[in-house]
Design a protein around this nucleic acid. Structure first.
Lengths: 162, 162
DNA sequence: GTGACTGGTTGTAGACCGCAACCAAACTGC
DNA sequence: GCAGTTTGGTTGCGGTCTACAACCAGTCAC
C-alpha cells in the first residue's frame, strides 16, 4: 500500500490545479515571462546557451516536443535573429544551431524580467520550503516521466494511447 | 529578501518541467485518464457532481476558462448525454446544468481508471510526502493565482499582457 | 415601456501540437 | 560506384484548446 485514496485525489487535484494555473499565468503575465521572445523562446534558447550549438532534433528531445514543431519554432527564432544556423560539418543533412548575440541579450533580458516577477510572486516563500517543494517536484516529474515521453514501449503496463 | 536566486531558478524550472510533463502525460496516457469522457469532461463533471446543478458561467469560473469555451464544452457533453440542461427557474436566460446518470457512470469509470493509473505512477510515494507536496502545491497555486485569473486590475503591479 | 445590464451562444482567429509525406544527404552491400 | 535503406529536417494538414468580439434574449431599474 502506498498512499490513501483521499491523499491521492488531493495530490492529483493539486497538480491539475498547478498545471491549469501555470498555463493561465503564462498567457496573462506573458510580458513578464517572455520579454521580446516568443513563448517557446526560453525553452529553446536556454539549452543552446548552456550546452552550445546543437541540432534541431536535440532541442526537440530536450523540450519534449516533436521535431516538426521544433523545426518551425527554430525557423521563427532564426527569422528574428535570435538563432543562427550553419551546416553541420559532420553531416550535410543536419544544421547546427547556435544562439546569436541578439538571442543572448534577449535571453538575459527575459531572465531579468522573470527574476523580478518571481520576486513578487514568491515573496511569501522561504529558502527551506522552496527547496523542499523543488525536490518533491523533481521527484514527481521523475516518476511521471515514464508516462510522458517516448510513446509506450511494447509490453509495458502502459497500453497504446488509442 | 526571500529565497536565493539559485533556488528560485531551480523552483521555476521544476514547475515548468511539471507543467510540460503534465501536458505530455495527459496526451499520452489519455485512455487511462479520460476513459470515455472527452479531455475536458473531468473538470466540468466533477463540480457538477460535487456541488449539484449550476450554471455554465459557474463551471467556467471554476475551471478557469472563458465562458465561451465552457459553453462549447458543455454542448459537447450534452450531445453525448453526460449532462442535461433545464431552464433556471430564477432566470429565464440561464440554464441549470446537471450531470446525468450516464455522466455519473462515465465519471466513476474514469475515476477508477485514474486510481489505477495513479497507483502505478505514485507507487514510490508515502503518505506524508504526498501530503506535504500537496500542501506546498496548494500554497504555490494560491500565490500564483493573482497572476493568473481575472485580467490584471488597473493600477496593479502587473501591466497589461500586451 | 425604454434603456442598461447580464447569461449564453456563435463567429473567428491564434497558439501549439503531432502525424504523414516528402526531400536530400549518408550509409550499406554488393 | 550504384541501388536500397536509413536518417535529419521541412512542410502540409488536421485537431485541440483558447480568448475576444458580436450578437440574441431575458431581466432589472426607473
Amino acid at each position: 500500500m502506498t498512499i490513501s485514496p483521499e491523499t491521492r485525489d488531493r495530490l492529483t487535484a493539486s497538480i491539475a490545479q498547478l498545471v491549469r494555473t501555470g498555463r493561465q499565468v503564462s498567457t496573462r503575465a506573458a510580458a513578464q515571462l517572455y520579454g521580446e521572445l516568443p513563448s517557446f523562446g526560453w525553452a529553446l534558447l536556454l539549452p543552446l546557451e548552456r550546452d552550445g550549438a546543437q541540432r534541431c532534433s536535440s532541442l526537440a528531445a530536450h523540450a519534449g516536443i516533436d521535431v516538426s514543431v521544433a523545426s518551425r519554432q527554430v525557423a521563427a527564432l532564426e527569422r528574428d535573429g535570435h538563432v543562427e544556423r550553419r551546416p553541420d560539418p559532420d553531416d550535410g543533412r543536419a544544421s547546427l544551431l547556435s544562439i546569436t548575440e541578439r538571442g543572448s541579450l534577449a535571453l538575459a533580458a527575459t531572465r531579468a524580467l522573470r527574476a523580478d516577477w518571481a520576486l513578487g510572486a514568491l515573496s511569501a516563500w522561504d529558502e527551506t520550503d522552496a527547496r523542499l517543494l523543488s525536490d518533491l517536484l523533481d521527484r514527481l516529474v521523475a516518476d511521471l516521466e515514464p508516462f510522458a515521453g517516448h510513446r509506450p514501449a511494447a509490453g509495458t503496463a502502459v497500453p497504446a494511447p488509442r
